[in-house]
Design a protein around this nucleic acid. Structure first.
Length: 573
RNA sequence: CGGGAUGUAGCGCAGCUUGGUUAGCGCGCCACGUUCGGGACGUGGAGGCCGGGAGUUCGAAUCUCCCCAUCCCGACCA
């Protein structure tokens, strides 16, 4: 079918919308693909809907290829399923809740582990039924505290979520690998430049988890990748190897008067002025954090990191799960042993939990607080003068830090999370007592995996990676149209020729957009570039030689093609 | 929830400091004419509870107070 622009429901914008600052948001709005309805909530117009459907089609094909079967759950869900898993409470303000006319509680589904688990429990009961993988492509709802960046982080979004059900750990690993393979093929077909990185499982629980991050400066996730081997990880999940212990003999602790040095910088400056050759990296910074564990009393945690680094709260939090970091302690009155600004791990009472970053090696000597106002201690040796109760990755990760695998430097990039796969294990199977009967007649607890792709987010990620100053440059796999025909000139001939080519291409199964509007050539060219069809065909001046101009949107390269050959040439592009 | 900014036509903005006829410009939209290969031009139109409320004033888009909303940064977030 030929789509004619004169009747296509489309209004392009010449100017950038005021509320958009990331490229995908700007261009999807300007190209008439989406319109904002409320914060984080968007309507999809014909062009955008076509792209969204194309992405979903690729996802469906690859899911089918690994044998996953599609279902569709409601988005509107009753409370009891989420009560059973504990997530009605766990999610807090993150979900949309509502009541029906009888006052019964409902929610708009943020993710559907509960529903899938229950469905399989109600239908299957034998080991012979497994393994099975089910998925849906569905609208999800999360009441984000701050939706941002247009389609990239909305409160309503389209997600493909699938779940695997296996009898044991080995089966789970096979399902997980199958999904990882499918995801790699999907993102490659979508034209996305992405990395697969180790991630933290966080609230989802489970053992293994990887994220698929589309590289983009506008991405919200920061990840490291090794410049030499294939190691890559979300910064929260970077595995810092414990620094090797040293057995250098250090002099005994010496306590120095260091008045008015509450910060690392002021301390280093004072010590250097007194002839001590130290830098911030030689100091041990001790930060007091409040830990909140749901259902338990809050506690404090003192963490020591090299003084030239900040504490990465997200990274540390990933390592204290299920506890959450409620912030930095600001009221020290309940902790007389902690001298604000002058805390040292040596001599801290056992009642205070003290951990260090793995970069603090046994046998290493540090400058740190003397637990007395206005005094610091030098030659404080880890393992000799204090013994941390544990090592938790807590220091910020920097470009140039060493790869935990091969010790080459790491680089840091930002990415958009387009997919996430989890070896979920039995968290939900336990919550719903999902068992099947084994060959011996005894019940076997099912093991699950959960796998997500942000379908609408992928559309935005594609635009982030495929655009230029003039507009979007759609990859062929998802382009709303493969060929955009632009007749120019006041005579009837250009439109006649363009229409003829358009109809022949459409008959050959090529999606075609025909700009039959009565507007100036400049408007047509600008819109063609903005809309981003991979091939733009101008029917104009060259018609006098029996030719049309074929432009590759990506490279800008233009070639002249005889009208008679246009259909066969374009059909094979 | 903290910090910053902004609410005037479908979209992008000016006007507000220093209150005063009928609130303006560009894009888009409608009509007619000219133009016709990189966002053409002329003429004439349609389109506004100036975010909401209360106040000050003879008079408020403009000043004061309160509220609401949106965007950005942070906290938060499979």
């Amino acid at each position: 079918m030929v789509v004619r622009m004169s009747s296509l429901f489309l209004r392009t914008l010449r100017e950038d919308p005021a509320d958009a600052d990331v490229p995908s948001h700007r261009l999807l709005v300007r190209a008439g693909c989406v319109r904002r309805v409320a914060p984080g909530i968007y309507s999809w117009l014909p062009l955008g809907k076509t792209v969204l459907d194309n992405v979903a089609r690729v996802v469906r094909e690859e899911m089918a290829a690994i044998g996953a079967q599609e279902v569709l759950f409601p988005a509107l869900l009753p409370r009891d399923f989420y009560e059973a898993s504990g997530r009605w409470t766990e999610y807090g303000e993150g979900i949309f809740r509502l009541k029906d006319r009888k006052g019964a509680d409902y929610l708009l589904g943020p993710t559907h582990e509960e529903m899938f688990t229950t469905l399989v429990k109600s239908e299957y009961s034998s080991y012979k039924d497994l393994p099975v993988s089910l998925y849906q492509i569905q609208t999800k709802y999360r009441d984000e505290a701050r939706p941002r960046a247009g389609i990239l982080r909305g409160r309503e979004f389209v997600m493909k979520d699938s779940y695997s059900f296996d009898l044991d750990e080995d089966g789970l690993k096979r399902s997980y690998e199958a999904h990882r393979g499918a995801y790699e093929r999907i993102f490659a077909r979508l034209g996305l430049d992405y990395r697969t990185v180790f991630a933290v499982s966080g609230a989802m629980g489970g053992s293994g988890s990887e994220e698929f991050l589309a590289k983009a400066p506008t991405g919200e996730d920061t990840f490291v990748s090794c410049t030499s081997c294939d190691y890559a990880a979300n910064t929260e999940a970077v595995d810092t190897a414990a620094a090797p212990a040293t057995d250098v003999e250090h002099p005994p602790i010496e306590v120095l008067d260091t008045p008015d040095t509450p910060t690392i910088d002021s301390l280093v400056e004072l010590l250097r002025s007194k002839g001590h050759d130290v830098t911030a990296a030689d100091t041990l910074k001790n930060v007091v954090l409040k830990l909140h564990t749901p259902g338990k009393d809050d506690e404090i945690l003192v963490v020591g990191v090299p003084g030239d680094r900040e504490v990465d709260m997200k990274r540390l939090e990933a390592n204290v799960y299920p506890a959450e970091i409620a912030g930095v302690l600001d009221d020290f009155t309940a902790y007389p042993d902690l001298v604000r600004g002058y805390i040292g791990p040596q001599g801290l009472p056992d009642t205070i939990r003290y951990v260090v970053d793995p970069s603090v090696a046994d046998g290493s000597a540090w400058v740190t607080g003397a637990n007395v106002e206005g005094r610091h201690a030098v030659n404080v040796v880890c393992g000799r003068d204090f013994v941390p109760s544990g090592r938790l990755p807590a220091a910020e990760v920097r470009a140039g830090d060493l790869c935990p695998r091969c010790h080459s430097p790491l680089s840091i990039d930002r990415g958009i999370e387009i997919g996430h796969i989890f070896q979920l294990g039995q968290k939900f199977a336990n919550a719903f007592e999902l068992d099947v009967l084994g060959p011996d007649g005894k019940p076997v607890r099912v093991t699950m995996g959960s796998y997500g792709i942000g379908v609408s987010r992928a559309v935005a990620a594609i635009v982030e990676q495929h655009h230029d100053d003039s507009g979007i440059v759609w990859p062929k796999s998802v382009a709303p149209f493969l060929v955009h025909l632009v007749p120019v000139g006041k005579d009837a001939e250009p439109l006649e020729v363009a229409t003829r080519i358009a109809e022949s291409l459409a008959a050959a199964g090529v999606s075609v957009l025909l700009d039959d509007r009565e507007v100036s050539a400049g408007v047509k060219f600008a819109d063609a570039d903005l809309l981003g069809a991979p091939t733009i065909v101008t029917c104009g001046k060259a018609l006098k030689d029996g030719q049309v101009e074929v432009k590759d949107r990506l490279t800008g390269e233009r070639t002249l093609v005889a009208v008679d050959e246009a259909v066969s040439v374009l059909g094979t592009r």
